Amino acid sequence: MAHDPAVAEAADSKPCAAYLLGLADDAMVYAQRLAEWMTNAPQIEEDMALGNLALDLLGQARALYPYIGSLDGTGRGEDDFAMQRSERDWRNVHLVEQERGDFADEMARLLWFSAYQVELHTALTGSTDEVVAGVAGKALKEVRYHLDHASLWVVRLGDGTEESHRRMQAALERVQPYLPELFDDDEASVGAAGRGVGVLPSSLRDAAVNRVASVLEQATLSMPEPSKWRSRGGRAGIHSKPMGYLLAELQHIARSYPGAAW
C-alpha cells in the first residue's frame, strides 16, 4: 500500500490537537467561572479585575480552538468547540469547573491555576509549533498578572485578621484535592511532548508548587497535606456534577437559536 504523506501528517497531528484541546478547555471553562464574579466580588474594582482575567482566558481559548480544528481535520471553529459540544467531549480538569465558592476559595483556585499556567506557557514558548509558541508568548504576559493578583489577595487575607486567615486556610484545604490532576501526564500530553509541541504536565509541578509555597509563606499560611480523595478523568471527558450546569448556562443561547450569527 502506498504511503500517503497527508494521511500520515493528519495522524501525527491528532495527539497534539487532543493536548491543545485540554489547554483551551481549561481556559474556556475557567473564564466562565471567573465571569460569575461580576457584581459578586467584594468590591467594584474586583468585579472588573476578575472580569478582565476571564477575558484573558477566553482569548487564550479562542486563539487555540480554530487551530485545533485545523489539526484534527474537522475544520471546527471557536463557536463549534465552545457551544456545540456535550459534556463528555470537554477535556478540562475538574479544578476549573467547580462551583464558585466564597472569595477565599476563588483566590486559592486562581493562585494554583495561575502558578500552573505560568510554568506551562513559559515552557510552551519553546514549542516547535509556531502557533503554539505564539499563543503561549501572549498568554504568559497575562497569566503572570493573574498570579500576581491572586498572590496579593492570598497574602492580604492570610496575614490579615484571625477570621480572614482561617477562611483562607480552609479554602486552600478545599482546593487541594483538585490539584494533582493539573500535573497528570496522559496519552495526549506524552504524544505532544514527544513531538516537541507540548510539555509534560508532571514537569511543571515542582516549579508551580514552589511558587505557591513562597506566597503561602508570606501569607503565614500552611501548605495543605495531600487528601485521601483526588479528582481524575477530566482530560478523558469525565466531569463532576457542576460541569453540566455550567455548560447549560454557557451554551443556552447558542443552542436555543442554532445557526444564529453573532
Score class of each variant (00 low, 15 high):
M243A: 03
R195L: 03
S13F: 02
V143F: 10
A6Q: 09
G69W: 13
L204W: 15
S189K: 08
S70F: 00
A35M: 04
T125G: 10
A17N: 08
E36Q: 08
A61T: 05
Y178K: 12
R88L: 01
D186W: 11
Q60S: 00
M1R: 11
D102Q: 11
M28L: 07
Q32F: 01
R76Y: 11
F113G: 10
P42I: 07
S164L: 09
G198K: 06
K14V: 06
P201M: 10
A54F: 06
Q169A: 11
L57W: 04
D186G: 14
Y67H: 14
E46W: 09
A6T: 02
L120W: 03
M38Y: 13
D25A: 02
T74Q: 12
E106S: 01
L152D: 08
Y30K: 07
Q60D: 00
L120P: 01
V209Y: 15
A82H: 12
Y30P: 00
R167G: 00
D80N: 07
P177Q: 02
G244T: 08
K14N: 02
S203I: 09
L216V: 13
E78W: 03
A17T: 04
R91L: 14
R62A: 06
Y178C: 14
T128K: 15
S227K: 13
A108H: 13
P42R: 11
A193N: 13
A49M: 04
G198T: 04
S222R: 15
D12R: 11
R166T: 14
E119M: 04
R62K: 13
A61E: 12
S256M: 00
K241M: 07
R255H: 03
P180V: 03
S222L: 15
A6K: 05
W229Y: 09
S202C: 07
D184F: 13
G234L: 04
Y116M: 03
L21P: 02
S256K: 01
A136N: 09
L172Y: 06
A41T: 09
V190E: 15
S202Q: 09
L55M: 13
Q43E: 10
E78T: 03
L58I: 05
E181T: 11
W153T: 14
Y245G: 10
G59P: 01
A236E: 05
A82I: 11
A219E: 07
